[in-house]
């Protein structure tokens, strides 16, 4: 996959979903400004926003983009990587806005919170992407699994207080989720 294609997919989809991205950022800013100190609120809120933006990649919401991508001369795994960038970028933006709001409020350890939250949000978002090309129970299962990833990351940080442990777990989950999404998208028939 070339950078050109990845940027094109990112640009086209972020533009088409600009309202969702703006709403996510506004929600993150408001929550970041009023929430009490702690990791639970930003981690779960931003994971929820990441899952929401991932589900916004479902086929049918932007038919002209879907039709274009399905008939484009790209391998499924290449398209999957490019499409995965979109909710990850939107979720990262929301986490960044949350961190900015926290910094404005004078919350300590904003940088550490940013890294911990981002570490959980990205794999949750990537797991939720697999739900976009499924229907019924498998779709619900993937969304539930994405929520479980966020809960597991939070539990790990709360118990071990280890950034390395959380990031390691999340990196493994994110890698497997992206591979899984690529394989599923390669076999996906849009009928």
């Amino acid at each position: 996959m070339t950078t050109r294609i990845a940027l094109a997919v990112l640009h086209a989809r972020l533009y088409a979903q600009r309202r969702i991205v703006v709403y996510a950022c506004v929600a993150a800013f408001l929550a970041g400004f009023v929430q009490p100190d702690g990791l639970a609120a930003p981690l779960f809120l931003c994971s929820l926003l990441g899952i929401t933006t991932a589900l916004a990649q479902s086929p049918g919401l932007h038919p002209h983009l879907d039709s274009c991508e399905q008939s484009a001369p790209l391998f499924g795994r290449h398209l999957a990587r490019a499409k995965a960038l979109v909710p990850c970028a939107a979720a990262t933006l929301a986490v960044g806005v949350y961190a900015v709001a926290e910094a404005l409020r004078g919350t300590p350890d904003v940088a550490m919170t940013f890294v911990l939250v981002l570490g959980a949000v990205v794999p949750a978002t990537l797991v939720a992407l697999s739900a976009t090309i499924r229907r019924g129970a498998p779709r619900v299962l993937y969304v539930a699994f994405a929520a479980c990833v966020a809960i597991a990351a939070y539990a790990l940080v709360s118990r071990t207080h280890s950034l390395i442990a959380e990031l390691s777990l999340c990196a493994i989950v994110a890698f497997v989720a992206l591979r899984q999404y690529g394989e599923a998208l390669g076999r996906y028939d849009p009928i």
Binding site: T2, R4, I5, L7, A8, V9, A12, H64, L65, C68, E69, A72, P73, L74
Partner: peptide
């Protein structure tokens, strides 16, 4: 849309 298609088809 045309620009997007042009990018995907290189």
């Amino acid at each position: 849309y045309i620009e997007y298609r042009a990018e995907l088809w290189k």
